[in-house]
Nucleic acid binder design. Sequence first.
DNA 1: ATGTCATGTAACCGGACGAATTACGAAAGG
DNA 2: CCTTTCGTAATTCGTCCGGTTACATGACAT
Lengths: 153, 153
Amino acid sequence: MRQDTRLSRLLHVLLHMAETEAPLTSEHIAGMLGSNPVVVRRIMAGLRDAGYVAAERGHGGGWRLTRPTAEITLLDVFRSLGEAELFAFGLSDPSPRCLVEQSVNDTMREAIGTARDALLSRFAEIRLSDIQADFNARRATHAPTLKLPHAPD
Amino acid sequence: MRQDTRLSRLLHVLLHMAETEAPLTSEHIAGMLGSNPVVVRRIMAGLRDAGYVAAERGHGGGWRLTRPTAEITLLDVFRSLGEAELFAFGLSDPSPRCLVEQSVNDTMREAIGTARDALLSRFAEIRLSDIQADFNARRATHAPTLKLPHAPD
DNA sequence: ATGTCATGTAACCGGACGAATTACGAAAGG
DNA sequence: CCTTTCGTAATTCGTCCGGTTACATGACAT
């Protein structure tokens, strides 16, 4: 599993976790992610330490959300992933002697900082429940014939 | 030289190139970057193909800007670097079967796309000459005692 | 109690990626 | 024609990171 796809994959897992009753084992999650239970535990550790999920051990154990999906934002999940770099590029030397390089840095810092703030505040606005709502709408549209309590004429 | 510092380093090189009369050899640039002339040529190839620099071979050869700094933007340089990924994260599967994952993707696509557009249009606004101007201001402030034609009183 | 299922972590392995290097060719001067 | 410098393909080498192994801890079932 590539590092740069973690956020997206983790959201996927978290939403499935929200949908199911039983806790999900690391084994099971690793299956979904095409990865490995140990790696899953490593990743989930961040979410656990941040208080968004908890694991129970032993028979019938596994991972559960500890909060309603309306109280978890994309920013929360991103942060829990260990504050990975947001951008695929950065400054070479943070405080260079060369005046030319200082100007380059200041210019790039401003541009990157603005973009970073904008993206993170957008992340902060998006709750897992928003994605859930989108998913439910999608399900209603996509598979309306499946297991309907009463078919609408 | 790490890949993610290329943009910043390249800007540095380009500005020095703008400041000097003689063309800069790949050897010389490699020295500035703590890298290797072959690697420099590889990187400069993008700028050359995009028409922002040209190399002359043989004695006294090297790299020159082929346009005034006011006609080169950060976006130009970034693009010439080969359209590297802007963000350090992305979607796992671009078109998944799973409806949950589709919702996750759409949500992230929207957020990333907006951030991407904003950052790239900011890059398009910044010209090398802007950084040069900042640098000149900085030089005037920082080292006012050095090599003044006539000392101000 | 004890066996099994599960997480928790440290330690190690190995593949993949990318920069550095090597090698060789072509062009431009002196 | 020899040196300088770019141009580029091919190869080597280091590093990073996910995968794996190993072992400990805890919880529940019987």
